[in-house]
Every structure is written in structure tokens, then in C-alpha cells.
């Protein structure tokens, strides 16, 4: 055979390439990149939200999603509503949810008040879903920071659902060939220079779209405004030129998502505690950073397993040999 050893391996690797579904042979080895400087981001200001759900409609329109019907109708004793998912699901990537306490008479008050929450993918800086996905189906784009899902990769193990601290990825349990669905920050619209469907639809500027840094600065500006002072709230984007003046609410002095769980690209302002809005209190780093540190520590370069294996195999080798000897001796004696 006049094929050289080198060429032989080449052929082998081409075979492997084909087997891998013509995808790049390089492992999709990602690293936490932090927030890309020009990352598209969303600011949700719960105090501006009027619960009109225009964003839900805008989202469905932008992404071609079906309408939903759920047990919520039964809960409220109504029927034939237009669209009513009881939470995020594979057809509703964005949901306005309600926090309610006591007689729910005043908006943005913790006791005897109510507040709205816009539930959707937070596009974490250290996405737990990306860390746990065994097939690298969920990946955070290093440039846009958008966490997207690869239909050709996912094996449907749903570890992402276990991992996500915000319960975002949704799985089509009712389908024979299910998919994972969640907000992809209107990647397709951004590519065309448009803004997300939700921020375009929002009439009050509760959902504001922009680059992360300017959006964060806007959030901080709002926190600095005294309660009751009139503030010109921008609508859709900071640069849209449309503003709606209104008195500032009594904000909780914290931008949720600036640091929580390692930070997110979707940040939230509110007047009621974030935990009441279904945003858990998270440490400054993601849970996955912990489990990764553990795994990497234990399995760094596979040194520990290989050493352990060496020891185990050696022990087994010695003991099996000894056993054989004893057996042979026993046979000989017999």
C-alpha cells in the first residue's frame, strides 16, 4: 500500500467529518466571553408596563407563532379568549405575568398592590443552558450574545430546563418530534436592522431595546430620578425620538441582571421586590460556573481519571493473576 500513514489519517478524519453530519470537526469549544460591547439588550421597566400584552402579540407576529389556549381560561371562568398561555411555552416566548397581593388596588406596591412582569429569555452572560447542553445545541453568540438553539444538535435531554434559573427553555412535550423553543431576541429582525418585535410593539416604553451599555446607563438614570419627578421615558429605543413623560415610580435601587447570576442581556427595573416577580435571588456568578469549576478541577486534562485507571488496572491485573495462580495450584493439587 502506498498510502502514507499521514494520508491514511486524513482519510479517516474525513470519514469522521462526514459521519458528524458535515459539521465542523472542531469541537464547539466556547468560553464565557462576558457581555459583547455592542450586544443588543432589552430593558424592562415593570413600573411602565400597563399589561396590554402588545409585546406578546408583537413577539408572535415577529416569530410566526401560533396562538395559545390553556387552563387559564378555566381559572378565570371565561372561554374563547384570543390568546392565553398560562406561562411561557413553545408558542409563547414572551409572557406578561401578574404579581398580585391583597386587594391589588395600587400598581407597583408590594402589599395590597400589583405589578406586571415580562417573562422571557434573559440571554445570560454565563448561560447555564449553554454550559449543560451535552450537544452544544444552545450557544451564546460571541458577538451578539444571543443564546440560540441548533435544531441539528439537540438530543432533547432537557438538561437546559433543569439548569435555567429563570425556567425559560420550553420543550414540545406533546409532539413526536419535539423542539426546544425560547426567545432568540429576534435574531432575524436584528440582522435586517430592525428591533425586536416586543420593543417595537410596546406602547409605553416598558420594553426598551438598545445596546447593552446605553440601556444599562438609562436604567441607572431612572434609578437616580426622585420618586414622583417627571421623567421623559423613551419608547421603543433610546434613539426613537418618541418619549412619554410621566412621574417616576419608587424604584427598588437595583438593576436586575447587571450582576445577578453572572449578569444578563435582558435587565429589569421594578418597584416591587424582584423575587415577587419570579426573578430568583442569584449569586454574582452562575451555578454552571460552580459545577464547571468542579468538573474541570476533577477532570483537568483527564489526568486524575487516567492515574486512577492506571492504579485500578494494575491492582486488578495483579489480583487476577494471583487468583489464576491459586486456581491453577488448586487444580494441580486436585
Amino acid at each position: 500500500m502506498n498510502i502514507e500513514r499521514r494520508d491514511f489519517f486524513k482519510i479517516l478524519s474525513i470519514g469522521a467529518l462526514t459521519a458528524a453530519g458535515s459539521k465542523s470537526v472542531q469541537a464547539r469549544d466556547w468560553q464565557y466571553t462576558g457581555r459583547p460591547p455592542k450586544a443588543p439588550a432589552l430593558l424592562y421597566d415593570s413600573t411602565l408596563c400597563i399589561g396590554c400584552k402588545a409585546c406578546e402579540v408583537g413577539c408572535k407576529k415577529a416569530n410566526g407563532l401560533d396562538l395559545d389556549h390553556s387552563d387559564l381560561e378555566k381559572t378565570f371562568g371565561v372561554s374563547n379568549t384570543w390568546d392565553c398561555a398560562d406561562d411561557l411555552d413553545t408558542n409563547s416566548w414572551l409572557k406578561i405575568k401578574l404579581y398580585k397581593n391583597g386587594d391589588a388596588s395600587v400598581k407597583d406596591r408590594e402589599t395590597d398592590g400589583f405589578a406586571f412582569m415580562r417573562s422571557a429569555c434573559m440571554h445570560c452572560v454565563e448561560p447555564d443552558c449553554q454550559s449543560v447542553c451535552p450537544t452544544s445545541a444552545l450557544l451564546k453568540d460571541p458577538e451578539t450574545g444571543i443564546v440560540s438553539w441548533d435544531v441539528d444538535a439537540c438530543c432533547g435531554c432537557r438538561y437546559c430546563q433543569v439548569a435555567c434559573p429563570f425556567a425559560i427553555p420550553k420543550f414540545e412535550y406533546e409532539k413526536a418530534f419535539p423542539k426546544i423553543e425560547k426567545c432568540f431576541l429576534c435574531e432575524h429582525r436584528l440582522a435586517e436592522g430592525q428591533i425586536t418585535g416586543c420593543s417595537e410593539a410596546c406602547p409605553t416604553g416598558a420594553t426598551l431595546f438598545g445596546e447593552y451599555e446605553t440601556i444599562l446607563a438609562e436604567a441607572k438614570r431612572r434609578l437616580a430620578v426622585k420618586e414622583g419627578d417627571t421623567y421623559d421615558y423613551p419608547v421603543h429605543t433610546l434613539e426613537s425620538g418618541v418619549t412619554k413623560p410621566r412621574p417616576a415610580a419608587k424604584y427598588i435601587n437595583h438593576v436586575y441582571g447587571e450582576k445577578d447570576g453572572g449578569g444578563t442581556q435582558y435587565i429589569v427595573l421594578s418597584a416591587v421586590p424582584f423575587s415577587k416577580l419570579g426573578l430568583p435571588k442569584l449569586p454574582e456568578h452562575s451555578s454552571s460556573s460552580k459545577s464547571e469549576a468542579l468538573q474541570h478541577g476533577l477532570y483537568q486534562g483527564l489526568i486524575a481519571p487516567i492515574v486512577l485507571f492506571g492504579g485500578l488496572a494494575a491492582a486488578a491485573f495483579r489480583n487476577v493473576r494471583q487468583e489464576e495462580k491459586e486456581e491453577r495450584r488448586a487444580q494441580d493439587e486436585a
Binding site: 378565570f76 398560562d86 406561562d87 405575568k97 404579581y99 391589588a104 406586571f116 410621566r246
Partner: peptide, 18 residues
């Protein structure tokens, strides 16, 4: 724009922990 909204039916909102 109007600001105070009722949060009771017929406005259908799922609870945070529906």
C-alpha cells in the same frame, strides 16, 4: 397615557407562579 390599571378580570394575566 393612562397609568393606573386594574389587574382583575376580565384582563387575563397568569400569576407569576401560575
Amino acid at each position: 397615557q393612562a397609568s393606573v390599571f386594574t389587574a382583575t378580570p376580565p384582563a387575563l394575566f397568569p400569576d407569576i407562579n401560575q
